[in-house]
């Protein structure tokens, strides 16, 4: 493979994956509005297009056309940089996520942008950089609500990152690798029974991951950083138009990332839940696209759960949030690591 063909292939993959991710983000917003609407016994968006399916396009056009206000007292360089950091970090981590089996022309992997053997660490690293977007947005806005929101949010992200990282150690111990492909292949033997959440006895880890993921993405019931009733809007109070939309997109892109990671680590990735009960399809295209279908279906279920929780649970108080993170999730995650390693050593 020459450098040029590598470059062109990578560029195509990056463009396709970015476009799919952005469309996914737009329709996750619609999914949330529809579902929360049904939970609250109303219809949600239903006017634009059939079933409101064109609503995301209209929303996008609206945020582009709105007036772009920049308050006079902001610290401009950082004020402009913060939404870019937030959205950039949210979109980079999709680069190491595999969507399907390694197939493609000339040994080239079409369902993953980059197969790296520290994939999980790359995702954790990029998540930890993403804090800056929020922290800088709050500080550079020169507004006390923004600053309070961003301080809360950064403290929350740093606290829950620990629990999140520790909850993944059990899975890494079982797979013996940080490569996301290896982790999925290790769960691929017998369908749903061999997924890490069931066969791997990692349901405690999955619970911890779920809770930490809600907090990491600033979602309800942990959406303290943008608690409307006390902080008006949190860190993005002073942002308008497309800059606000970038924070908004970053939040939903992070949700999708978290869903992808949960799918890969706990729900068997692209493998079918039925294992080998269904004979593998003969058609080469169906064979290649079936795993992608399962992957998307699992991520969709995860996002559905996300929205369901948002529509059901009220917001935590700030001290409850911190107590829960440090006194419940952290010790539980450490116990899970000890338990998993004892189990592995016993075998």
């Amino acid at each position: 493979m020459t450098l040029l063909s590598f470059f062109i292939w990578s560029l195509i993959k990056v463009v396709v994956v970015s476009v799919v991710l952005l469309v996914g983000v737009a329709y996750t917003v619609l999914l949330e509005r529809k579902l929360v609407g049904r939970i609250q016994n109303r219809w949600g968006p239903s006017r634009v297009g059939p079933f409101g399916l064109l609503q995301p396009l209209v929303d996008g056009a609206k945020s582009f056309l709105k007036e772009d206000l920049i308050p006079t007292a902001v610290y401009r360089p950082l004020y402009l940089m913060a939404p870019i950091i937030a959205l950039g970090c949210a979109m980079i981590s999709i680069g190491v996520i595999p969507f399907g089996e390694p197939v493609g022309p000339k040994g080239f992997d079409i369902f993953e942008v980059a197969n790296v053997n520290i994939g999980l660490l790359v995702i954790l690293g990029i998540t930890s950089i993403g804090v800056y977007g929020i922290a800088l947005a709050g500080w550079s806005s020169n507004n006390k609500y923004s600053l309070l929101g961003s301080l809360r949010s950064s403290a929350q992200l740093i606290s829950y990152e620990l629990a999140l990282g520790l909850s993944l150690v059990g899975v890494v111990l079982r797979a013996g690798s940080l490569n996301l492909r290896t982790i999925v292949e290790q769960q691929a033997t017998r369908g749903i029974v061999s997924w890490n959440i069931f066969g791997g006895c990692q349901f405690v880890a999955f619970f911890i991951y779920l809770m930490a993921a809600y907090a990491e993405t600033n979602r309800s019931p942990f959406d303290l950083p943008e608690a409307e009733s006390e902080l008006t809007g949190g860190y993005h109070t002073e942002y308008s138009s497309m800059k606000f939309a970038m924070f908004f997109m970053a939040e939903y892109a992070n949700m999708i990332n978290v869903g992808c990671v949960a799918t890969l680590l706990f729900l068997g990735g692209w493998t079918s839940p039925l294992g080998n009960l269904i004979p593998p399809p003969q058609n080469i295209f169906v064979h290649a696209l079936m795993p992608v279908f399962w992957f998307v279906a699992k991520v969709f279920c995860f996002l559905f759960l996300y929205v369901w929780v948002r529509g059901t649970l009220p917001r935590f108080r700030y001290d409850q949030l911190m107590n829960f993170g440090w006194r419940v999730l952290m010790p539980l995650a450490i116990l899970n690591i000890i338990g998993t390693s004892l189990l592995l050593a016993y075998r």
Binding site: I118, L121, V122, G125, I126, T127, S128, I129
Partner: peptide
Amino acid sequence: AAQIIVYSG
């Protein structure tokens, strides 16, 4: 990776 997670992050 450790450099990014620990120092930058």
